[in-house]
Amino acid sequence: MSFSHLKPKITTILSNDHETSEQRMKEVCELLQTSVGYYDWVGFYFANEAEKTLHLKAFAGEPTDHTVIPFGKGICGQVAISNKNFVVADVKAQDNYIACSITVKAEIVIPLFKDGKNIGQIDIDSHLEDPFSEVDERFLEWVNSEVAEIL
């Protein structure tokens, strides 16, 4: 899939200084969730270093009980520690997975860096098995770099 048609829309959303950064991130989540057929849930988590937890700040999709995630727990918590992309083709095959919904089959989590520090991440769940590719990774890295500019 080509994500080139979404980039200008994301740039426009993020450049709207009349909205809070949290509102702009929510709009990015909504755009991604409604525009990419296999992005069923999209959210941004941000780190609280003192508590070693991640906190959900913006999302699109079904509400989740997982608004606070300890570092090391689940896919998101592992990315908070590893600072590396984590693509899960089949969540059932992961021992350290936090089940959000029985419909989730795959997950991709990309760390968000500001000034070289991992401050959060974008998390995407899919109801399809193994939908994510390197193209998704590169696109989401770009999204995170753009989001970092408004933080």
Rank of each mutant, 00 (worst) to 15 (best):
M1W: 09
M1V: 13
S2W: 04
N16M: 06
D17G: 07
H18N: 07
T20N: 14
R24N: 06
M25T: 01
E27W: 12
E27P: 04
L32P: 09
Q33D: 06
T34M: 15
V36G: 02
V36I: 11
G37F: 03
G37R: 11
Y38G: 13
D40N: 07
Y45F: 10
N48T: 02
L56H: 03
H66L: 15
T67Y: 13
I69M: 03
F71I: 01
G72I: 03
G72F: 08
C76G: 05
G77W: 08
V79K: 06
V79R: 05
A80Y: 01
N83S: 14
F86M: 14
V87K: 11
V87Q: 05
V88L: 04
Y97T: 00
A99D: 13
A99N: 12
S101T: 04
V104I: 05
V104S: 08
A106P: 05
E107L: 08
I108V: 10
I110D: 00
K114C: 09
K114T: 04
D115W: 02
G116P: 02
I119M: 06
S126A: 14
D130Y: 11
S133C: 10
E134G: 09
V135L: 14
D136H: 01
E137D: 05
L140H: 03
W142K: 08
N144C: 13
S145Y: 07
I150C: 10
L151Y: 11
